[in-house]
Simulated assay, not measured.
Amino acid sequence: MPSLIDQLDQALERSRSTTAAQSLGISELIRGALRETGSYAHYPVGMSEPSYVTRKEPAVVGSFRMTDVFPAPTGELVRQLDIGSSHRTAGNIYTIASAVFNSSRVLQAGARLVPIKDAPAPVQRDGVTAFYRRPAEFKVVTAPAMSVVTDGADVTVSPLPVASASIDFPDAPSHAISFKLSRRERKDNDEADTEYIVARALTLGLARLCDAVVLNAIVVAAPAPFSLAAAAARGLRFGELAAIAGRLATGATVAQDGTLRVAGIRAELTDVVDESVVACWSRIGVACEDECRVIVRRTNTNGDMEITMFTNLAAMLPTADYWLAA
């Protein structure tokens, strides 16, 4: 039987291997792009010299999942970062989903992030290939209708009070984020710090995409102007409401207690739409791919990089519990 020290060593090794398997892997992608030659040599059988060379992009492709561990900066970089970038709860595993949640206006207001898993592999049978669908669904349970029942009368039966929004996820719009990473920017930082900065930029961009997708979907739906009477008619509590003020800050004011308000509702600012939106955000979802694809491409022989992320996002609006501020 192994000693206690051996058991602790084994547990530590398992912990390290698990963390490495769940890390973002940006550093590995950058190193892989640096090694790419930008060409592929074709060697005939038995020949030592290539017959021809095919050009290709000096790029590598990877991915990360919402449950992957968000990289941590070194102590040197922490002293150079803003508090919002470096703050995290001690002792907790900080994931990509956590980073997106902490940076998104709509998610902070109460909207739900709905990661969609990969579809199973296609099935082949009798010469026919069948592909799986990936329907995404977000449901909201509301209070059923009530009625007064007189003696001898039958109770009125209402439908199940569940509202749902669904989408076939391959049909969801594809979104991309792309930015440059110069050789000098890589050399000025430790490898771990470079990975953190890139991961921070990607998650901030993903959070902003969530805001843009949801808020633009609400604006396109052209809801009615907000009023407390309209919210009360929907059976909402005042505490369930929150507002997001757009670029025009329509209806936005700063209350005497120093909080931002839109039509008297607590609010936050955004730059992705012009309009100001008031909603019960807990009844709104954002469907996103659980796996986001990342391409790291070397743009020149100096080692400058171009980092691009692709993902599918869709707003889920099962109920019309949202309004525009007048």
Score class of each variant (00 low, 15 high):
16 R>L: 04
221 A>D: 13
171 D>S: 09
73 P>S: 06
18 T>L: 10
91 G>N: 03
282 S>Q: 14
98 S>G: 14
265 I>R: 00
216 N>R: 14
17 S>G: 00
93 I>W: 06
252 A>D: 00
8 L>Y: 08
66 M>V: 02
206 L>K: 09
24 L>G: 04
101 F>Y: 15
148 V>M: 12
257 D>V: 00
139 K>A: 07
289 E>H: 04
110 G>E: 04
2 P>R: 05
211 D>F: 11
13 E>R: 04
203 T>G: 08
62 G>F: 10
182 S>N: 01
307 I>K: 09
86 S>F: 03
194 T>D: 01
59 A>E: 06
130 A>D: 14
305 M>L: 15
247 R>H: 00
72 A>T: 13
245 A>D: 01
72 A>L: 12
291 E>R: 13
215 L>K: 06
34 L>A: 09
153 A>N: 12
159 P>A: 05
72 A>H: 02
308 T>M: 08
77 L>V: 08
116 I>P: 03
19 T>Q: 05
93 I>D: 13
108 Q>K: 14
321 D>H: 06
167 I>N: 00
272 V>S: 01
104 S>C: 12
227 S>T: 14
104 S>A: 03
291 E>Y: 05
71 P>T: 12
228 L>P: 06
234 R>Y: 06
284 I>T: 12
93 I>V: 15
135 P>K: 00
48 S>I: 05
322 Y>S: 07
263 A>S: 14
238 F>P: 03
85 S>A: 09
127 G>K: 13
228 L>M: 15
68 D>L: 02
227 S>K: 08
164 S>R: 08
315 A>F: 10
82 D>G: 14
22 Q>W: 10
161 P>C: 01
195 E>D: 02
286 V>L: 09
91 G>A: 01
326 A>S: 10
252 A>Y: 03
171 D>M: 04
115 P>D: 07
293 R>M: 06
150 T>K: 11
52 Y>A: 07
196 Y>T: 11
188 D>Y: 06
243 A>C: 04
257 D>Q: 02
157 V>E: 10
235 G>K: 03
19 T>M: 02
300 N>I: 02
186 R>D: 01
183 R>N: 06
303 G>K: 12
